[in-house]
Design a protein around this nucleic acid. Structure first.
Lengths: 101, 101
DNA sequence: GAGCTGGTTCGACGAAAGTCGAACAACGGT
DNA sequence: ACCGTTGTTCGACTTTCGTCGAACCAGCTC
């Protein structure tokens, strides 16, 4: 299993944004932002296994997440510090639900 | 001509991100971030008139730009202050070209 | 009015993206 | 060895998106 997780600076910004520009993936990112690691199966957002796997792959290849393999499970976590360093404010802006005043 | 420019808080974040997740549109936004208003025709990024018009529409309907009609021309500007208020850091993060160290 | 100019709208087309079920692979436990 | 659990991969299908040329519309100018 090739887990290729790109260097963040090699990922074009548009790819990053595209990865975030999906409802399911944004939900995943929001969940990941809460805490540390989550097993893939944690994310039940009304999509099939196959689709969930697909979205996690997109996130990983966009440089947003890192995946650790442990036995039969995979644990995913957000590459928050790297992201904050390269794109300060991006994650915070995206994760903050705008105040509906 | 209905210039419908949505309230920024009514635009889902994903729509905003999707609007930014395109090379041509990001170039436009970068250009707009430089200064004030630009006529639509200013943007020559290797796409046809029709395509340019399409992209400007996407940006407008995502709440990213405002358009002023003046005679036969339209002047576009970035809704920067609103964006910064609702999503602080987002534009800066996106506009900043990451240092390739 | 005729003609030009700046933009939009309308199909149409190909490429890409999201979704699913089914098949598969790998590991763990009994 | 078998089975259940976890997750990936493989078509296939549908929808969306970017792109273009052509037609169109609205002002401006002569």
């Amino acid at each position: 299993m090739e887990l290729h997780e790109p260097e963040l600076r090699d990922v074009p910004v548009t790819a990053l944004l595209a990865a975030l520009a999906d409802d399911v993936r944004l939900q995943i990112v929001r969940a990941l932002a809460e805490g540390g690691e989550y097993a893939c199966g944690t994310f039940e957002f009304g999509v099939s296994k196959a689709t969930r796997s697909h979205h996690l792959k997109v996130l990983r290849e966009a440089g947003l997440t890192r995946t650790r393999v442990a036995g039969t499970s995979r644990y995913v976590r957000l590459r928050r510090d790297e992201l904050d360093r390269l794109y300060p404010g991006l994650l915070d802006a995206v994760l903050t639900v705008p105040t509906r005043s």
